[in-house]
Amino acid sequence: MYAAIVVLTAMGLSLGFVLGLAARLFRVEADPVAEKIEALMPGSQCGQCGYPGCKPAAEALARGEASVTLCPPGGRALAEELAQLLGVQADLSGVKDAVPMLARVDEDLCIGCLKCLRACPTDAVIGAAKQIHCVLPEACSGCGKCVDVCPTECMQMLPIEPTVRTWRWPKPVLAAA
C-alpha cells in the first residue's frame, strides 16, 4: 500500500515540476493592459456583456472594441475605473447607478427546482431538490443569472440590506442655502 502512495505522490510531484518548468519556458506574454482590466472585473464570468467571460471582455476592451460601460454587475464604479485606466471619456449617462444587488429567494414561491443552483457561477445558491433554496450573500456576486432561469420568479435582485456590521449613520443633509 505504501508503494502505491509513494509512487502516485512522486509521479504527481515530478509531473507538476516538469509542467511548472514548461510554463516558465513557454511563457506567452499576455497584453499587460488586458491583465489589469481583468483584475478590475468582477470575475464571475456571468456573460452579461456578450463575451464568453471576463477575460475575453478585458481583451476586447484593451483592443478598443468594447465600451467601458459593458459590465452590468460592475456598474458605474467599474465604468469610471476603466475609463480612468484607459484614459477615455466615458459616457456614464446610460449606466444605472447600480446599488450593489444580491439575489434573494422568496420562500413562498420557491419550488426547489435546482435551476438557479446550476446557473450560479459562484455557487452562492444552496439547496436540494424540492427543498427551498437560499442564497449565501457572502458568495453572491449579483450577476442576475439565477433570475433569468427561475421558473416561478421567486429569485429577485434586491439591494443589500444593511447589517449590524455594515450599517452607517446617514450622511447629514445640508439645509438649502
Binding site: 508503494a3 502505491a4 509512487v7 502516485l8 509521479m11 509531473l15 516538469v18 509542467l19 514548461a22 510554463a23
Partner: peptide, 29 residues
C-alpha cells in the same frame, strides 16, 4: 516491479493529463 497494477488507469490518466497540458503550452507559444 512494485506489483501495483491496480493503479494503472489512475497513473495513465495522470500522464495523459500532463502530456496534454504540456502540448497546450507548447502550442500556445
Amino acid at each position: 516491479p512494485l506489483d501495483i497494477g491496480f493503479l494503472r488507469i489512475l497513473a495513465f490518466i495522470l500522464i495523459i493529463a500532463a502530456v496534454v497540458q504540456f502540448t497546450e503550452m507548447v502550442m500556445r507559444k
